[in-house]
Amino acid sequence: MKKDNILEVDNLKVSFKTHSGEVQAVRGVSFDLKKGETLAIVGESGSGKSVTTKALMGLLPKPHGYIKEGSIMFDDKDITKLKDKNMQSIRGKELAMIFQDPMTSLNPTMKVGKQIMEGLLKHQKLGKEEAKKKAIELMNLVQIPNPEARMKQYPHQFSGGMRQRVVIAMALACNPRILIADEPTTALDVTIQAQILELMKDIQKKVETSIIFITHDLGVVANVADRVAVMYAGKIVEIGTVDEVFYNPKHPYTWGLLGSMPTLESDEEELFAIPGTPPDLIAPPKGDAFAARNKFALEIDFVEEPPMFKVSDTHYAATWLLHEDAPKIEPPESVKKRIESMDHSEEAKR
């Protein structure tokens, strides 16, 4: 493993056995995560982003979901090879996860304090009193008012935003080195979303953990991430720093995503939508999976899969448009305009 990498995922393939055949949900994903950075993974529903993180956590639904190929290196160990027993000592301690829907991710019949303490009791071998103290500290950290009293309450006595704070406190309990947040704000209403994002940024500064942030909301990405990976049909099609992907996108799918993002300034034209639907992952198409929906597709896109082309040391994209023989194609005007307007709004913020 490279020195400042905390996680290296190489050619990860995850499939699900179903009655109609093998669904290739993740088809060869590679990325690394550096210490203390936030990597956002974006993509449509069904692009494989959640499945990727489930594979990282060893939480694929057994027995039909399985890792077909590839490795996940953490601490110089390939955690895909670990037995479940050994994985249990990593889960919740080194790798922790925040889930999408705080209304269903807490046990309705267990007191909130106890749910936070569980991880502490299991991994840090704390006594009950110490664990209780630590749980109160954690609730303070995630800004739940009056933690001593709230400890003794049940999830139904909490609002959605407060529940998500509990989920975050649970995830942070053992100072994990990697925090995976699977659309942590999707189920919350907009004002609460902003609060939770602020809280997460705040916490990252305090506890210095690396974060993998799954989302389909590009606005959130710009707000929290250092780097972005764009996933489509089980593959990463473009990866780079936030600035590179937002201001110099290379993959037509990224253009589509950026173009379909509503902004406050977008009064001029109607919202752009990517035509068509994602491909069937039981029988993925030959060539570039996005070709059928891509008006810039070249002939080769339907025949051969594009490799990752290097744009800069940190920026890669899998599109034949980057091949030296490809015609020079610029992103569509509307997308360009959108990028410019983002630029302005960023400047305005500063």
Binding site: R91, F99, T104
Partner: peptide
């Protein structure tokens, strides 16, 4: 249920 996944993510053993 989702909260069972949460419990797994905490690293709890199957029996717990």
């Amino acid at each position: 249920e989702d909260y069972i996944t949460t419990a797994k993510a905490k690293g709890l053993a199957g029996s717990a």
